[in-house]
Design a protein around this nucleic acid. Sequence first.
DNA 1: AGACAGGTTGGCAGCGACTGTCAATCTGGC
DNA 2: GCCAGATTGACAGTCGCTGCCAACCTGTCT
Lengths: 196, 196
Amino acid sequence: MEKAATLWDRSRQAVVAEIVETALVLFAEQGYEATTMAQVAARAGVSQRSLFRYFGTKEDLVCGEQDALGELLVRAVEEQAPEVSTWDALRAGFTTILTASNHTQERVLEISTLIFGNASLRARYFEKRLKWQKALVPVVEKRMGIEHREIPDPAAMGVIATVFACVDTASELWVRHGGKADPFELYERALAAVRG
Amino acid sequence: MEKAATLWDRSRQAVVAEIVETALVLFAEQGYEATTMAQVAARAGVSQRSLFRYFGTKEDLVCGEQDALGELLVRAVEEQAPEVSTWDALRAGFTTILTASNHTQERVLEISTLIFGNASLRARYFEKRLKWQKALVPVVEKRMGIEHREIPDPAAMGVIATVFACVDTASELWVRHGGKADPFELYERALAAVRG
DNA sequence: AGACAGGTTGGCAGCGACTGTCAATCTGGC
DNA sequence: GCCAGATTGACAGTCGCTGCCAACCTGTCT
């Protein structure tokens, strides 16, 4: 069963990757909004119904991998040594998911540009971001020595939200510079302005 | 023409307010998602087509006034004395729009709870927030003594994004406390944790 | 008063994202 | 080869939203 499951998983993963690829081509050709799910299904050679079974929403065609990245982020922050400051731990987490991404920089830029350029994709990304932030709260609280309650502490939440804010700032500027800027430096400059 | 226009505006505004009221009642009864625009139109006594003319989207039934608040925010920050720090100027802006809102605290809480509890409303709010942030960039750059370029400076953007992050943190916690907490104190605690 | 022009409304048909359902098909294990 | 379970595809339907057109209401000019 083990081997069968993974084999099946691999073939499914290949199908998913191929669908994503055709979708991205179509989005690049005609734009995200102007491309219908029917078109994607037709060109990918699956029925519309199956397409919606693979990707629950149109946005998932672009943002589908973010769940995995979120878990990775939380784990990376968790595994930072206790003497590392909260800020450094969070930055390390983001460094991890950036380097762990198995895409070329061009692909990341393409997808980021797509996301930043479309309202519903931005919304989708934002929702995922919120989940990541929520998952980080206990980790950061522990690191800051704050006891966990049902309603979190504003300090922990504020720090997390701020780091995400600076990451978003850096990402947006990186996209607007067409990838021709160092995202880490942008992040550092944003955070430096905040922390004085 | 002056008087006629305002008279007409007033009647239209009354219609809008009444529609919003019936919509909020329906949302409270059955939830946001489960309420269809057809239901709102029927109970408000207008055609579905006209409902969509008053409110371009379902989300606008809840988030409709945010455009005006955004302009108010930008103006308030702009009008702060130059010797006021950027952080204080931004906080003053948010204080302004909070006190300028012509709703009772209960109504603000009701709407905020609705928004924080639904993904598409959150998305809508987030989009508006992005517009506010964008509009604030030149104002804050000027205040920080940064020359304005086509692609903004990460320092200004980071500061703005951080203030919004802390405002969001405070808002969310305020909602989760059922309004039984001081939102300003929550904001101060979040920002204090960030700025050390 | 009556015709005329402007904007407002309602109904209808349609699009696109998304879902439930059910039959057809494919798969792995006996 | 056959059966059970999973996967797929086709179809119809819901809901948010838009374009279009005819009806209507309002104020104006003659």
